[in-house]
Computed example of a mutant assay.
Amino acid sequence: MPSRRAPQDAFIKKNFRTVWPVHLAGFTRLLVQLRKRFDGDLDLPLVLAVIGSRTQPEHWAVELMDLGIMTSGSVPKSRQLPINIQSVAEYSGIPRETVRRKVAILQERGRVTRAADGRLAVAQSTAHDLEDATGETIDYLTSLLMAFQACPPLDEPIPPKS
């Protein structure tokens, strides 16, 4: 069965040599920034990202429409979907005990809250606290967008590299 993304996949494969170096450079800068921000432990931002992405209701993107609102911590608190340590472990592939330790660290740093029933949520202040990493993400996405815009359409031949 063909992928529903077949045209996008074909476009990226055709333009891979243009897009890949931009992706690699931007993604590497982002990982370096996150590693610094989390004292060398890349599992911490991964656990935080899993909690954030897996607990947001379907309409959460509306809250992210304004970066200023998101990073000011004034995003209206909406009901988050439940997730616990076991679910984070299963989704991420990180062992449960490791996730438990990482969640404890994130709680100590005020990045994650844990309800009495074990439900995890990203603390509201986290977006503001990680604003520099968000800036790095914006730079990364901007670079990718510019690389994609520089690519010829699928029906045009790729010019030779000079």
Score class of each variant (00 low, 15 high):
86 Q>A: 15
86 Q>E: 14
87 S>N: 10
89 A>M: 07
90 E>A: 15
90 E>Y: 13
91 Y>F: 15
91 Y>D: 07
93 G>K: 12
96 R>F: 10
96 R>C: 10
96 R>N: 11
97 E>I: 12
97 E>R: 15
100 R>I: 04
100 R>V: 02
101 R>H: 09
102 K>Y: 05
103 V>P: 01
104 A>K: 14
104 A>V: 04
104 A>F: 10
105 I>N: 05
105 I>D: 08
105 I>V: 15
106 L>V: 04
107 Q>N: 11
107 Q>R: 15
108 E>K: 13
108 E>P: 04
109 R>L: 11
112 V>N: 00
113 T>R: 01
113 T>P: 00
114 R>T: 05
115 A>L: 08
115 A>D: 08
116 A>H: 13
116 A>Q: 14
116 A>P: 05
118 G>I: 00
118 G>H: 05
119 R>M: 10
119 R>Y: 06
120 L>T: 00
120 L>H: 02
120 L>Q: 02
121 A>S: 15
122 V>Q: 04
122 V>G: 01
123 A>I: 03
124 Q>C: 07
124 Q>W: 09
124 Q>G: 09
124 Q>I: 11
124 Q>R: 13
126 T>F: 04
126 T>V: 06
126 T>H: 00
127 A>V: 06
128 H>D: 10
129 D>N: 12
129 D>R: 13
129 D>E: 14
130 L>Y: 09
131 E>I: 11
132 D>I: 14
